[in-house]
Design a binder for these strands. Structure first.
Length: 105
DNA sequence: CCTGGGGCAGCCG
DNA sequence: ACGGCTGCCCCAG
């Protein structure tokens, strides 16, 4: 079975996301910034879309910078459920008090 | 609330 | 290799 053909960029994105603990979240934009590619948020999203291990690598903890949930490979429903299961308050498809849950590298 | 345009790694022909 | 698209985005108006 074939391991990963992931690009360097993708690996770095996933590597960061893997560090986000339960109950915390981050944004596409922040990841882009940490990777020193401040305008590549969309590319970050694309990289997450290729996440090979949705469980091990919690890309559901990555939301939009305005608190909106954003999309998810397995469906937005699922993403919301997973987040709520981690005690994150979501109302009208938007994380309440985003800054309170933000994870900092 | 909605709209348009910017920006960028990957993918595909 | 090359150019055009696409998409888990963002922000100004």
């Amino acid at each position: 079975m074939k391991i990963q053909n992931l690009t360097k960029f993708q690996k770095r994105v996933l590597g960061l996301v893997r560090q986000i603990p339960k109950g915390k979240v981050t944004t596409y934009k922040m990841i882009a910034k940490v990777l020193r590619r401040p305008k590549a948020q969309r590319a970050v999203g694309n990289a997450l879309n290729k996440n090979p291990k949705p469980i091990k690598i919690p890309c559901h903890r990555v939301v939009r910078s305005n608190g909106q949930i954003g999309s998810y490979k397995l469906g937005q429903r699922k993403k919301i459920k997973l987040l709520e299961r981690e005690e994150i308050i979501i109302k009208n498809k938007r994380v309440q008090e985003l800054d309170k849950y933000l994870f900092r590298w």
